[in-house]
Computed example of a mutant assay.
Amino acid sequence: MEKDLVKRAHDAFNQGDYQHAITLYQQAAFQYGQHLFDINISICEQRLQKPNQVIKSAPKSADAVPVAQQLVETQELLEHYYRRCQELEYRLQGAS
């Protein structure tokens, strides 16, 4: 079974293929909403401009989460809610 679009974009990002990740995130943005993927696309673009530099997040504090970790967590949540939405749609179709 083919991986869903967001998962493929996430995999491309983790493999350092930022240009491909941008393309996939843009497709996902068109499908699910631009505001959901703006930061993903922005981080990929920054990585393409400065490939050896880590993206800096807000100043570190005891509860600050690095941008890369936020990206991973957001990605996981998006995938979870997408799958949940599909499950609910299938249930509604079965109830008809």
Rank of each mutant, 00 (worst) to 15 (best):
M1R: 13
E2C: 05
E2V: 10
E2M: 09
E2N: 12
V6D: 00
K7I: 00
R8Y: 02
A9R: 08
A9Y: 09
A9S: 10
A12C: 14
F13N: 07
N14A: 13
N14F: 01
Q15F: 00
Q15I: 01
G16W: 05
G16C: 11
D17S: 14
Y18G: 11
Q19A: 10
A21T: 03
A21Q: 07
I22W: 05
I22L: 14
T23C: 08
L24M: 06
L24C: 09
Q26H: 07
Q27L: 10
A28Q: 09
F30N: 12
Q31F: 02
Q31V: 00
G33D: 04
G33F: 07
Q34C: 05
D38A: 05
D38Y: 06
I39R: 10
I43F: 04
I43H: 04
E45Y: 06
Q46E: 13
Q46M: 15
R47T: 00
K50V: 00
K50G: 00
P51N: 10
P51Y: 01
P51T: 01
N52K: 09
N52L: 09
Q53E: 14
Q53P: 03
Q53Y: 06
V54H: 09
V54R: 12
I55P: 11
P59R: 06
P59Q: 03
K60E: 02
S61G: 10
A62F: 14
A62M: 11
D63Y: 08
P66I: 01
A68N: 12
A68Y: 06
L71K: 08
V72F: 02
V72C: 04
E73K: 08
E73L: 07
E73I: 04
E76Y: 07
E76I: 04
E79A: 05
H80C: 06
H80Q: 13
Y81F: 08
Y82R: 15
R84F: 04
C85N: 15
C85L: 09
Q86I: 11
Q86H: 08
Y90S: 12
G94A: 15
A95T: 02
A95Y: 11
S96T: 01
